[in-house]
Design a protein around this nucleic acid. Sequence first.
DNA 1: CCAACAATTACGCTGCGTCAGTGTAC
DNA 2: GGTACACTGACGCAGCGTAATTGTTG
Lengths: 142, 142
Amino acid sequence: MLAQDRTLLLIGQVARASGIPIKTIRYYEELGLLKSLDRTEGKFRLFTPNVLTRLAFIKRVQALGLSLQEIRECLQIYDWGDRPCDEIKQKLEDQLVEIDQRIEQLMVLRQELNGILKGWNTQSKQLDRQADKICPILQRDT
Amino acid sequence: MLAQDRTLLLIGQVARASGIPIKTIRYYEELGLLKSLDRTEGKFRLFTPNVLTRLAFIKRVQALGLSLQEIRECLQIYDWGDRPCDEIKQKLEDQLVEIDQRIEQLMVLRQELNGILKGWNTQSKQLDRQADKICPILQRDT
DNA sequence: CCAACAATTACGCTGCGTCAGTGTAC
DNA sequence: GGTACACTGACGCAGCGTAATTGTTG
């Protein structure tokens, strides 16, 4: 945090400093998560170092499972001058509920797969000829 | 299973009989999961009732988590005259491993979300001013 | 002749990766 | 004037949904 905060950054420098690919940064800009302050005469994007703060935030909340749309909403609140913490908390709580649901679904699926695989060898001896099923073991109850 | 097995079906009839949308059926055909036996003079697809067997199979294994590409491989084996059961068993075993990994990842994420949300109110009183973080509660350790 | 059905084409979603072709900075 | 850097634009992935427009069946 030296006094060099006025330096403008090219997209490649932002990419190296943040660890986020150039293409991704341009995509975020397109979605409205970032704005480049200006362009050079030759249309090269120029960013303030501030963009690194935003990218760090984006990485963090994205790792927690929020979509880019949700992140954009948070950043808009931030740009209006408020801390988006309340909004984020709400979204994280929603996210927790969804995670639980997905885990639940996956557990059910896991159970079903387990059941099918356990009975596989036993079943395969009995159900050999059934023209209307492609894999009779799988489709014994349909 | 009456003797009407020679009747050819239009795509809408297939859709109604299988419960799968027309658009999806066309998409499956495009991917090579299905083939229409023939066309009418006016280019309408004609399917044998056989297609219902295939669609039932596709629905079943897709519900177990296999991708359409994997399903296509199984159906190809079937079309070569073999039962694809061994292949399917292998894919389901792989799928089980992946499910376990995904559950594991989601559990980790769940833990992290829980931790963050638990400490939220306590933290929010202390960390109010930090210019380089968008939400200081979230990013206290970065 | 009309209603119901079907055809093809293209664009949308999510989060980017991967060219391709062209211009810019130093 | 070369080389690294950046630009825009298009297409690809998965699995379809949703029009839009035009033709077919009975």
